[in-house]
Design a binder for these strands. Sequence first.
DNA 1: AGGCAGGCTTTTA
DNA 2: TAAAAGCCTGCC
Length: 279
Amino acid sequence: MREMLLSVDDDFDLKRIADSGQCFRWERTGEEEYRIIHTDRCLYISRCPDGHFLLDCGEEEFNTVWREYFDLETDYRSIRGRIEKERDPFLYAAAEGEKGIRILRQDPWETAVSFIISQNRNIPAIKRSVAELCRLAGTERQDKRGKSCYSFPDPEAVLSMSAEALAQCRLGYRDKYVLAAAEAADTGVFDPEEMASLSDCALMGRLTDLYGVGPKVASCIALYGFHRTDAFPVDTWIRKAMKNEYPDGFPFQRFRPYNGVFQQYIFAYYRNKGAQMQY
DNA sequence: AGGCAGGCTTTTA
DNA sequence: TAAAAGCCTGCC
């Protein structure tokens, strides 16, 4: 079995990424270990006590697939370094508390469907729906440990699902949005390669043109599926945070083009804080 | 035109 | 029972 050790001289915390709400198909398989599915690949990654990471892939697969997926070319420590502690103690505390989060470079189609499914639901429910969708419409393979691993269904596979199968995914009223997105992808209206060349603003416009995609979901797709690090999704948690911490507005100018990264710290920090303090 | 109330499926805490 | 990484429709 191929394995490799990786040392990362930057923020990289598997648990914080897994819990960050940007990905719904990371599965915790051990104390410090996760199984990650990305396009047609499956990776087991764990953190060793000495701080290295153990990956069950070879150097070549790492360099062509996972280095990009984990966004390892970006220096998150220096992005955090933009925060002035005295000027914005709240943001400093959030970034310090959630240090280790990175913005993954995920597949645009999977990201679009996942965040359409996410609306008005909490993360456990989203994960269940996505898992069921993959189980019922994706392609089954064995991972390197002989466990089942389902690909994310392509648009055609979604369109060919029976009404019963779709109902089993518990999408509720969102099922028609998912079908519309599949239709758009199948007919070339949703074309990730073409959309990748658009400006942030034009991309947002194209995304919100999709049925069932408003500003919040479009921002998530732009940030996680197209790696537009300035996209700033505003959900219920961010809304509370903005109201409490930035009554005069968030200083977007100062943090361009990484507002999305700071959004991520704030989101995670507030959600975790909320679990203890009841907002 | 642009803002707002109400409705929507289901799960989670 | 309220809230959950919201959006659509219809009304004003």
